[in-house]
Design a protein around this nucleic acid. Sequence first.
DNA 1: GTCGGCCATAAGCTGAGCTGATAGTGCGGG
DNA 2: CCCGCACTATCAGCTCAGCTTATGGCCGAC
Lengths: 295, 295
Amino acid sequence: MLDPRRVVLFRSVVRAGSISAAARDLGWTQPAVSQHLQALERSAGCRLLERGPGGVVPTEAGRLLLARADTIAGELHLAEEELAAVAQLRRGRVRLAAYPSAAATVVPRAISLLQTRHPELDVELTEAEPPEATEELRAGAVDLALVFDYADDAVDPLPGVVRVPLGEEPVDLVLPAERAAGLGRRPRLAALADDPWIVGCVRCRAHAVRRCAEAGFEPRVRHVSDDYVVVQQLVALGLGVSLLPRTALEAYRHPEVVVVSGAAYGTRRRALLHRTAADGVPAVRALAEALAVSG
Amino acid sequence: MLDPRRVVLFRSVVRAGSISAAARDLGWTQPAVSQHLQALERSAGCRLLERGPGGVVPTEAGRLLLARADTIAGELHLAEEELAAVAQLRRGRVRLAAYPSAAATVVPRAISLLQTRHPELDVELTEAEPPEATEELRAGAVDLALVFDYADDAVDPLPGVVRVPLGEEPVDLVLPAERAAGLGRRPRLAALADDPWIVGCVRCRAHAVRRCAEAGFEPRVRHVSDDYVVVQQLVALGLGVSLLPRTALEAYRHPEVVVVSGAAYGTRRRALLHRTAADGVPAVRALAEALAVSG
DNA sequence: GTCGGCCATAAGCTGAGCTGATAGTGCGGG
DNA sequence: CCCGCACTATCAGCTCAGCTTATGGCCGAC
């Protein structure tokens, strides 16, 4: 009864945010998309989109349909990958979401490794923080999500999603050179109780606060930026101290900051998420392996 | 790339067993279906069906696609149900698979109960033994599966499938009247070690053999029929003794057989299976409730 | 007010995809 | 053995689903 093509079209429209935008994405004209949606709403028996200037927003019914449409689109994508593999064409396309510092370090290594092993495999990279990456995975917008969490704040995966641990990395203390001079080789966090702090994304901020709380104080957060280049610039200018995961320091290291490692600064865990439904897809497995090796 | 309509059509063809049969089901002509399949194979890049004179059989690639197509069709069906519910039309359609003796007793009660509560709800009943019913559920051909297993031979549900226990029913001993006369009020199974036995489906047979083994003998199986009417006819003619679950005796009771109950004869467990994906669908929930009440 | 985004509607044209006819092929029965 | 009967592919032709272009209305920003 519901035309499945129109269901996936509906999904494109919601994701694009407007009928016109979806039409542009698809290389169609706006009325074509508009007519399909009307036909879909007619066969659904109820309105699926609230039209407004500025775009469209799904109604209650639309949100229900969207969830179904997500898994339909996901299955279609997986089917294409499987068939491409069977057809020996290996013209696979894998979509990966990764957090910024990994996108700058592990991911490029993995992609170049993959290119030598499977030259005809296309990787599509989206930069996204773990919560967004997980959501995109669930919605079938990506096949793999490279995420992190902190050892003291583990996050449970969603049902239907498999979590493969990829190892841990230490979190390091980052100090202005002149500030480091006044401290020992391995300063205790408590010594920095009165310094201004610079923190990153919501979860990194929570981690920093927990570590400091354990050392007996609440940090004065002066600056917030989840860009590790910005954070190091601020530190280098003496504007505060910060905690940064090793990968971020590998991706970019400001020459004038001092980096100190120590167990008290915490540990971050890297993990790779994929839908159970995508278990057997060769292109996905190949990228997952390359990431595991490069990690 | 793959047209989802054609993917669903492909599924219909495999389920129908031939291109012509699928065309008849859909009210189309055979060339129309044939052309769509060719287009699908073209965009898949490989052959999906082995064509033969007796119909078609999916290739390796076809089987992969079929699995994806099953979940796509299932999601589409669920989406339709959800939307129908939202549209307040309540013109729901629920597909139920049930084993024969339940189909004759609990199910009609549940359906008539449902008709009074939700007159616009259509129930589509398929008779199927538990293994087939489970498979049909997995493949999205039905929404609910009413199954049984024996307490001493529990079956684990598949992933993605929820099992709701619906209670237990005793298994009774069924004897010819003249045979019963020579035994006590509650005969021990061992007393029937030399009688010919009549058993039903594979799993019921296994259960009978286990009960007898516990009583110290291996039954001589003379007749096999999973039709409880046939079994009782055979017993009434004095051709053997049998074990039948209470529901089967409720559905049909031959006037000339003697029925004895006793713990040693075993217990059968009824359960209702549904896909987790169908959790929230109102039509499915309504039938599930009606079955639970009628059970 | 004007402009620039959004949406819907109308009318017209074109090709995707239907039908009907035909031919090829393997299997079972007289 | 050959005929009948299933099945499938292929061809040609027509029709309408669904595209396009054109237009108008609505709302918010400037």
